[in-house]
Amino acid sequence: MTALLEVEDVTMEFGGLRALSEVTFAIDKGEIFGLIGPNGAGKTTLFNSITGVYPPTRGRIVFAGRPITGLRPDRIVQLGICRTFQQIRLFPFMTALENVMVGVDARHRTSVPGALLHLPRFKREEAEGEARALELLHYVGIGRFANELAANLSYGDQRRLEIARALGTGPSLLLLDEPAAGMNPAEKNALRDLIRKIRDSGITVLLIEHDMRVVMGLSDRVAVLDHGVLIAEGRPESVQRDPKVIQAYLGTGAAGDGEAATGEAG
């Protein structure tokens, strides 16, 4: 096994608040890696530091043998990491197809001269980009909405569109931030199949998810964050039994969080 992504001693501080402290783990090529933890544990912050939104205060992130700490977000996308958002962030008044084309464009190189003179590469890339975008829309199952505005799609379809758009950038590591949030059971099932399909096509997946059924059923390995500290890591079954994890979810009187965890993990 070769590690695709290595997170080493990553610490993230906002003012006096420590959102992540010395988080270390590695994701192997071709696996689905689940990242769980109570609300406010630092999961999204970790996503943001991997994707370059906020470079970590300390620590190192290595992707495919290459340090990516502190690189600009668009460079990191070029290298092959792309993400979705916890709150859906599509381009609302672009069509579904155009949304995915923005993603696909990350692989293209046409710039001003090409576009101005309609050079062959421009024409080729536009045609290829459109075809690839359409293909991806069908891949995630919303091909029939290609010409619909993103804002008009249903919630579940918007989630799928986000995934298609991220896949458009041609990532070797896909970061999904609570993709099942707000979905009904049928949609969740379809989503699980989709994520497996993505993994089987050779893309490594890092998944943040609250729905224990989804995350435990899908993940090859799971890591648990609590208060910015990585408290457990391993196979789903062993993590589920880890007393530290149960403690984190149940806390001392945090009934709300605990209920969600045990209820869905069971």
Binding site: F85, R89, M94, E98, G103, A115, R165
Partner: peptide, 20 residues
């Protein structure tokens, strides 16, 4: 592509940046 990128920035800069 340039025009698409401009539109993307206009509509959601954070998402645009995450798409490269």
């Amino acid at each position: 592509r340039v025009g698409r990128y401009w539109t993307a920035i206009r509509e959601d800069e954070v998402a645009a940046s995450a798409m490269g």
